[in-house]
Amino acid sequence: MLALVVAAAFGVLVFAVTTLDDATKRERHTKAVTAETLRLERLVLDLDTGLRGFVLTGKDDLLAPWTSARAALPKSLRDFQQLASTTAGERRRAMTLVASIDQYVNDYAVPVVEIARESPAATRQTFVSQEGAQQLAAVRDRFADFLSTESAVAAARTSTAQHRSDEAIAAAVAGLIASALLIIGFGLYLARSIARPARDVAEGAARLAGGDLTTRLRPQGVGEIEELTHAFNRMAERL
């Protein structure tokens, strides 16, 4: 019984440690996804910065942020999608964000740069800049939605894991307390059923040896210990 209680308490403690470790891994994952999301957003903003600078001035050197960001974007998108894929919901949100980025880059930004090279004045029309502002705002809204949802989901997971861990630790502590009580109870049982009767037999033998032939023992203990007291009394009666 004692072994089962101790084993159960140990098992619960292992569960608590595993739960906390899982929560820690999830937290690290969330931080990694958040960092990659922010890097991706920075690239999109660099694309827009280079695009607007080039459209307004026609100077190729102002297109440098665009060129650099566009070169880095494919890898960043792959890294982001690879990280944001632990659950179906996270994967779906990531795909939605990636689709909005692709739409902004391929349906607006790339065509505008190409047109600006051929006909700069055409891309300086108000409606072009308004369209770009609207599309960029939509992409940034997607970023904000993704980050806020990721943060909320991570917080909920951490809270649940912490709650389960607290429950497991409480159960383990209760198991250890129960184990201690069982050990104490078993010790008292041994003292009462073995140690005390054995001491009484020793004291009785000493009294007999001292000449008190009326010495008798009250039968107590269990098994061989009780039989020992009976044997002592039979021996005393024969003296």
Rank of each mutant, 00 (worst) to 15 (best):
A191R: 13
G221P: 01
L217S: 01
Q82M: 11
A121C: 01
Q135M: 10
A155C: 02
V14Q: 15
A99M: 09
N233H: 04
L182I: 12
E227S: 09
L97G: 07
T34I: 07
I177P: 02
R28D: 14
L188S: 10
L190I: 13
L63A: 11
R78K: 14
L56R: 15
Q103C: 02
R157P: 00
S119F: 14
R28M: 10
V33D: 03
G175N: 02
L2F: 08
A99K: 13
T149C: 05
E90Q: 13
M95C: 00
A172C: 07
L51P: 00
I184K: 02
T57V: 07
R124V: 06
L208P: 06
L38C: 03
A71S: 15
T160I: 09
D61K: 09
Q130I: 06
R164M: 14
S129A: 15
A152G: 01
Y104E: 04
V44F: 02
L77T: 14
T34G: 04
M1N: 06
T96A: 14
Y104V: 02
I115Q: 03
A178D: 03
T215Q: 11
P197A: 05
P65S: 10
L13P: 00
R142S: 12
T158L: 13
A205F: 04
S76H: 00
E167W: 13
V128F: 04
G210Q: 09
T18W: 15
I184N: 04
R157C: 02
T18G: 15
L239T: 10
E131F: 08
G53T: 11
S129W: 01
A209K: 12
T215Y: 05
F186Y: 12
A168P: 01
A9G: 01
A16S: 09
A23W: 05
L239W: 11
R78A: 15
T86D: 07
A152D: 09
V222Q: 08
L213Q: 05
V128Y: 01
A170P: 01
R117Y: 09
L56F: 13
A236W: 03
A180I: 11
E118S: 15
A121G: 08
R70S: 09
D61S: 11
V153G: 05
E167C: 07
S100Q: 12
A88N: 08
R39L: 10
L217N: 00
R91L: 04
A71K: 15
A236R: 06
G204C: 03
A23Q: 01
A71C: 07
T49K: 04
T215D: 03
R234Y: 04
V153A: 05
I194M: 12
L190V: 14
F54P: 00
A155R: 13
T160F: 08
D107I: 04
S85W: 03
A16Y: 03
S159W: 00
D141R: 14
S151R: 14
A144W: 07
I194H: 10
A195H: 10
L38Y: 12
L217K: 00
F80W: 06
R199L: 12
A84Y: 06
A168I: 06
A99W: 06
F127I: 13
T37P: 00
L20D: 10
T30P: 05
G89A: 14
E131K: 12
A122I: 00
E27P: 00
R192Y: 09
L228C: 03
V14E: 12
R70L: 11
Q135S: 10
D166R: 13
L83F: 04
A71P: 01
P120K: 06
L40H: 00
L182Y: 04
R93W: 10
A202D: 09
T87P: 05
I184R: 03
A180D: 04
